[in-house]
Amino acid sequence: MPGTDALSADLTTLVRSVSGVTTVYDAGSSIGRALGKVADLVSGRRGDTAPILVKDPSAGITVSVSIGVADAASAAEVCRRVHDAIAEHLAARGEAASEIAVQVSSIG
């Protein structure tokens, strides 16, 4: 879906820019879930290399992302920051998510 693809791409860029985030893992299908596969927007690949964004008209937008954290004072804090950044981004577009799930998969 073009609308969600663009939003997904924007959110991936956003999440990667949050201090303490070193990796955005593929949160997509099990086929794509491999160690070290990082969201790579430069290659133009979408879908399986971005945070899952599911748009459900009745229930609202849901966002889920899996991140790697490093060189940060607190992984829990980074996790919260990522959530807040996503929530703010959506709010700025006049949208709200029914769920924003942020999972820290590695701390290094």
């Binding site: 992984a75 829990a76 996790c79 919260r80 959530h83 929530a87 709200a96 998510a97 029914s98 769920e99 924003i100 799930a101 942020v102 999972q103 820290v104 998969s105 590695s106 701390i107």
Partner: peptide, 16 residues
Amino acid sequence: IRHDDTAARLTITEGA
């Protein structure tokens, strides 16, 4: 991981 926002589901994996 705690968050006031009820729409937030924040976690750290056991593996991490």
